[in-house]
């Protein structure tokens, strides 16, 4: 696939955003921004775009909305940079902000669906929204898209908090303690949400498999 040579696929969940103090390079960029050099901010955006959009896409399941959320996260970062003390890395800050934006987005979408009886599962899946490893095999590609659609449908039936907690633990590889910190919840609450999400997903996916048979 020639496109993949120019593309970056973020498949290393655990190391996506290492925690800790701002590194020296990032500190230098922040100093440039504080001195009024806007090209420093551009550098930050370029460096983090793939990861932020990837996270947003995994959380909301829609490429266009994921890009909008990422853009909002960067705009908020720009606004917060003067107060940025360097207690956390830019990546960690973006990660947390994007997660919160995604939760708000999912809540709004849920309300919209309730009000307008809008059925998202009727929509055709975005053919370029995800990378499938099916090569050029159309059957496998179809199955992959179908599995994706089913997962999205099942996820959308969870509460926005369960959806985010499951995605952060299962796909992003974040420890429950970190998720609790990000979302300002108790670890016990996060555990309960994760369990309910997993149980619900298994039920939904089992029902889907039975439908296929």
């Amino acid at each position: 696939m020639p496109a993949t040579t120019a593309a970056t696929i973020d498949t290393l969940p655990a190391s996506r955003y290492p925690r800790g103090m701002v590194n020296v390079e990032e500190q230098a960029i922040l100093e440039r921004i504080r001195n009024g050099d806007e090209s420093g901010f551009e550098l930050l955006v370029k460096e983090h775009t793939g990861k932020v959009i990837g996270l947003a896409w995994r959380l909301v399941g829609n490429r266009e909305d994921a890009e909008d959320l990422a853009q909002e996260a960067f705009l908020r970062l720009h606004r917060s940079l003067p107060q940025f003390r360097g207690e956390s890395q830019i990546g960690t800050w973006l990660y947390r902000t994007t997660t919160h934006l995604a939760i708000d987005y999912l809540r709004r979408e849920r309300i919209k669906r309730k009000i307008f009886f809008f059925r998202q599962d009727n929509e055709a899946p975005d053919p370029v929204a995800f990378a499938c490893d099916s090569g050029s095999n159309p059957i496998r590609e179809f199955q992959s898209q179908e599995a994706m659609r089913t997962l999205r449908k099942s996820l959308s039936r969870l509460s926005s908090r369960q959806q985010v907690i499951f995605t952060l633990r299962h796909y992003e590889g974040l420890a429950l303690k970190e998720i609790a910190e990000h979302l300002g919840l108790k670890t016990g609450t996060v555990k309960a949400h994760l369990h309910r999400a997993v149980t619900q997903l298994r039920l939904e996916l089992a029902a889907y498999r039975e439908e296929l048979i």
């Binding site: 496109a3 993949t4 120019a6 593309a7 970056t8 696929i9 973020d10 498949t11 955006v45 370029k46 460096e47 775009t49 793939g50 959009i53 990837g54 896409w57 995994r58 995800f130 990378a131 490893d133 992959s144 599995a147 994706m148 997962l151 995605t167 299962h170 796909y171 997903l201 996916l205």
Partner: peptide, 15 residues
């Protein structure tokens, strides 16, 4: 059995 959610980002996305 859950599908992978690997997001493919093109090189120009950052720009």
């Amino acid at each position: 059995k859950l599908p992978n959610l690997n997001y493919e980002s093109d090189a120009a996305a950052g720009t």
